[in-house]
Design a protein around this nucleic acid. Structure first.
Lengths: 378, 378
DNA sequence: CTGCTTCTGCATAATATTGGGCAAAAGATC
DNA sequence: GATCTTTTGCCCAATATTATGCAGAAGCAG
């Protein structure tokens, strides 16, 4: 019960649900005396600090508390398609240090894991001057069975099946490890950074592929086998129906993903391989690129409308490489959602672009670790 | 804490999560002594009874507990489009008594509420011989803002806007009241009756209209404004795109709902007004009716596939009037889901027909009341 | 029948928590 | 500056909970 209360208070304060002793008493149901005691303990341990007082509401202003960002550090690692990125975070989510390494997802998983562990060790050394590293969070570019820590769709990451990533990486680094899918972690980061109070949240990533993370009541929705939010392979009736890399025809991805737009632009004579190239053409002002983005935007709008009808989110965020096109990408999404969904559902809806595209993945990994792994007060 | 523990144990036992003292100790985290004490209290109060012992696992068999179904009764009310149905339940969910009344959703809400309160009063009298009525659950055929107890889309139930149904009905009956949308309650009932362990569950109702309830982690997913699961008005690219009663074109409903199939059959010279008539023609073996159902089934399959891709449920149940066609309705759903969704998502998926079509609505209302309203041991 | 295991009841000492009462601090209001 | 409100600290008696040991009950395996 004792440690439990500490962890509960930690999370209440961290998530912003409680800032004063009063808040903590109400949220936990503890009595005044007990709350005072717990808080004192956490202050003495150094996990909590006094934060800014809440402005008075007619009486004595409440003393505010905050997490001491320097009590522990965390490592977040984002496995990209070609590049791995590892960052050191304090408990406030600030990036303290970072490093990158080349990644080959077709290589022997043990090699890749060793690279990750190596980066973590580097950051751990760098962290030694400030605070000990308490946990490692990892973003994996494939569907995961979070319960077992294994890759759920080995086809994408060949050779990773039956490898318990969490366990293996934990053994190699000596740290508690939290793992999740990249899209889920982008979703988590965007929620925590910009929409922390939103209880029905969705994040669509449109980059080289298309994916989606969903949060309900502050937690990620994963589904029975970890594939929830798979709107990249929802099929449309649009003609012609291009072949998708999943083998079916007419998937959202085959119309709108970065690889599909690149394919179309190649057909128009451009040298264009992936989402990044598409964006480059767009930045150069090529009208064909803008046209492709507009087309993609409206296809994305269709699945977005389906998503809004089905889940009735409060906030829908569009992120990923192609979202750097900003309004050009949002236009079709807005159009189709407002055209197709119930006013009742759209009244409450905010549609926005993701912030901070560079760091979002690692940040998500850090948030995951922060939230899944209990802080040891010892 | 005291009452809280009682309520916690009650729910653990009721939901089947705990049957023995050992289970209760583990699930609640209470110590043996405390658990013994609580259980004794609840046994003495009459809320718990000794149930069947769990078979021995090598030693003394554990004493099983169960809810005493006769400790309290509940009233469930289902507002249909033309008929209201009220049932008296014991705590095991058995129907003890029932009554019906004509309903006109366009009438003055106060009149309708009075009818409901009247039916509840009748059942309360009938209940007096056994146990006191502890709560009333109500199924409303319109989207609801469950937080405030108000109808969210007044267009469907004209005159009901700004009426706090829960509060009003509570005042009229003197009972604590729980309210929810009809589709959500069908979903709840089906889950509790047949798939209680399933953590990712979806229920599609295809009757005169089309709607869907979603459960995540044992709780209904309502969305930001209570419209989650609205797949009746997801639009398809199918040509021709018939006009929907919502004013848009090509909605799922406009292709596949009972009213749409009835419209098509009228066009073929049949006298057919709603889902019930469609089913009658089908039962008579009219080939046109079967053809219409097949067509509807495949359209339903499309949105079902979208749903499965988006939410990755473990179980998908199809219910409502048209689901009485059984395999004729399931065929298209199965076909399109297996054709369009990832094997990873469909491996885990069970697709089934709803049970017990007649009572499902009232049963759901009773479950809602049972779960939302704490039992007073006094 | 005998030992083994599991489940339960009971008693007790050691802790923990609650709920008040009282006082003081720190700002708002007039 | 006086009074009010809200927040907090501290103390204490009354309860509640936990961990623990012991004993008995009830079935299983040999």
């Amino acid at each position: 019960m004792r440690k439990d209360a500490a962890s509960t208070i930690y999370h209440l304060v961290r998530s912003g649900q409680a800032q004063t002793q009063r808040d903590i008493e109400q949220e936990t149901g503890l009595s005044r005396g007990t709350a005072t005691q717990r808080i004192t303990e956490l202050l003495e341990a150094g996990l909590l600090t006094e934060g800014p007082s809440r402005p008075s509401a007619g009486g004595r202003p409440a003393r505010g508390f905050a997490i001491n960002p320097d009590y522990r550090n965390l490592v977040g690692v984002d496995m990209g398609e070609r590049l791995g990125r590892a960052c050191l975070f304090d408990l406030s989510g600030q990036i303290l240090d970072q490093c990158s390494f080349d990644l080959d997802l077709r290589a022997d998983p043990q090699v890749t894991l060793a690279q990750i562990a190596g980066a973590a060790a580097d950051l751990d050394r760098s962290s030694a001057r400030t605070a000990p590293v308490a946990a490692l969070g990892l973003s994996v570019p494939a569907p995961l069975d979070v319960a077992t820590g294994r890759v759920a769709m080995p086809s994408v990451m060949y050779g990773w099946d039956n490898l318990d990533i969490r366990e293996a990486l934990g053994r190699m680094t000596g740290l508690p490890v939290a793992v999740d899918n990249d899209v889920n972690l982008l979703c988590l980061a965007e929620h925590r950074l910009n929409w922390p109070q939103c209880r029905n949240f969705a994040f669509i990533k449109i980059g080289t592929g298309i994916g989606c993370g969903i949060m309900v009541g502050g937690a990620l929705l994963r589904g029975a086998s970890g594939t929830a939010g798979d709107l990249g392979h929802i099929q449309h009736g649009l003609q012609p129906a291009p072949l998708c890399r999943c083998g079916k025809q007419g998937c959202t991805e085959a119309h709108a993903a970065g690889w599909a737009l690149a394919r179309d632009l190649r057909g128009q004579g451009f040298d264009c391989q992936d989402a990044r190239d598409v964006m480059e053409l767009w930045l150069r002002g090529e009208p064909e690129a803008l046209q492709a983005l507009n087309r993609g935007s409206r296809v994305l709008g269709k699945v977005s409308a389906d998503l809004v009808a089905m889940l009735n989110p409060e906030v829908l965020v569009i992120g990923g490489q192609l979202a750097r096109a900003g309004e050009a990408m949002l236009a079709g999404v807005r159009e189709l959602i407002y055209q197709r969904c119930l006013p009742l559902a759209t009244q409450q809806l905010t549609i926005a672009l993701a912030s901070n595209t560079e760091d979002l993945g690692v940040r998500g990994a850090a948030f995951l670790a922060m939230e899944q792994i209990p802080i040891q007060p010892a």
